[in-house]
């Protein structure tokens, strides 16, 4: 259960240690990729809690979403429209929805537990 957190921390440490920097013009791509990744992760947790989790969906969703978001941002830059905002909006809304679902499931579980005891 704690392994993902440890993985997250390891990732952060690795990122800080490697001292990588992305050129300024690409930082928006990375930020949107981070958002997409978060969305997928939270979505995966929700699916897991709802017992509809599918590995293939999760893994392909992760990479596909990142690539899609980045290419949308790329297209936006070349069209002169801030298209990445569309991705930010979509991911943002979904993130909130998924988190709300997760919260409800946890709440329900907790209530159940309390009624039992």
């Amino acid at each position: 259960m704690w392994l993902p957190f440890i993985g997250f921390i390891i990732g952060v440490i690795l990122g800080l240690l490697t001292d990588w920097r992305i050129p300024d013009e690409y930082s928006s791509y990375l930020s949107i990729a981070v958002l997409a990744a978060f969305d997928t992760l939270i979505g995966g947790i929700r699916a897991h809690l709802q017992n509809v989790y599918d590995e293939n969906v999760f893994l392909t969703g992760f990479f596909f979403n990142i690539i899609l978001a980045a290419s949308l941002a790329f297209l936006g830059v070349h069209l002169g429209v801030d298209l990445y905002l569309a991705a930010v909006f979509a991911f943002g809304v979904r993130l909130f929805q998924n988190i709300a679902v997760i919260r409800r499931i946890w709440l329900a579980k907790w209530m159940e537990k309390r009624q039992k005891s």
């Binding site: 957190f5 992305i22 981070v34 989790y53």
Partner: peptide, 25 residues
């Protein structure tokens, strides 16, 4: 276990990206 492994991997990637983004900004 496999699922957890995947989650861990993805979390690590996210952490890495976050750290890079943080350092960039």
């Amino acid at each position: 276990r496999k699922t957890i492994l995947h989650f861990t991997l993805i979390a690590a990637i996210i952490g890495f990206m976050l750290a890079v983004q943080f350092q960039t900004t």
